[in-house]
Amino acid sequence: MEAIKTKIDLTRQGRLPAEGDREAVFEARGVSVFYGDQRAIDNVNIDIYRRLITAIIGPSGCGKSTFIRTLNRMTDLVPSARLTGELRYRGIDLYGPRVDAVEVRRRIGMVFQKPNPFPKSIYDNVAYGLRILGMKKDLGERVEKALRAAALWDEVKDRLKDSALGLSGGQQQRLCIARAIAVEPEVILLDEPASALDPIATSAIEDLMHELKRDYTLVIVTHNMQQAARVADMTAFFGLDVSPDGNRQGVLVEYDETEKIFTNPSDKRTEGYVTGRFG
């Protein structure tokens, strides 16, 4: 059943723009990330395109989460983390000397593995970012718009003042997406957004991603290949590499249109992974 669904969903992607018409938002050139002396990911080269959904898949420990966190400089929060190479966002070096990480994160939002609503009301969760960013005009409307965009409005419109902690896991995650959308970012990064959710909530999130694609560039890390196949236009496969000095690090093995990755990968490791014969 799972396989059939995958097949159906693969056709649901709609028309992918031809290679020449894609506009790169992120351009990574030789990006490596270190935690102290330990190299976590090595020499990643990738273009991530505007208003497409890009999935990052791969075995655990391959640096998927590390990579997505470099895209909005959440890696700054780990004091020992260090990035080499070049990572450009719309032409600007994200790690350039005068780039402000706070400004970066405002434009490039993030949704995390575990739903992390603040211990505040539903309304205040969405309004929080708007308030601190000074987007206080039409606050109520903006909150409603974000909740509608996150397909949560109908479920919570009568209890906006209730604590967000009373929502179900799936609702909490959509609230976190609404919270991220509210501040009008350009990109939304999703780090395994459905791994803590049940299948119904997961499918709601996936539907939502298809909706959001119209206005946003989405990057999703997932360990669930069916999910990548269902939602993503482009898929990047990260693998584990052991360097001669014994260091285990993540590398970008293959990056292509999702359909190609899942039906006709050019790298043996990708093929092994997507067909479940990894190892």
Binding site: R105, G109, N116, F118, Y128
Partner: peptide, 27 residues
């Protein structure tokens, strides 16, 4: 206070102090 709450605020573009005042202290 779970680190996810801090990350949630910072990922929205809050400064450290805004995260402290808006999330950490209330929690």
């Amino acid at each position: 206070v779970p680190p996810e709450l801090r990350e949630g605020a910072l990922a929205l573009g809050a400064t450290r102090w805004e995260m402290v005042r808006g999330v950490l202290l209330p929690a």
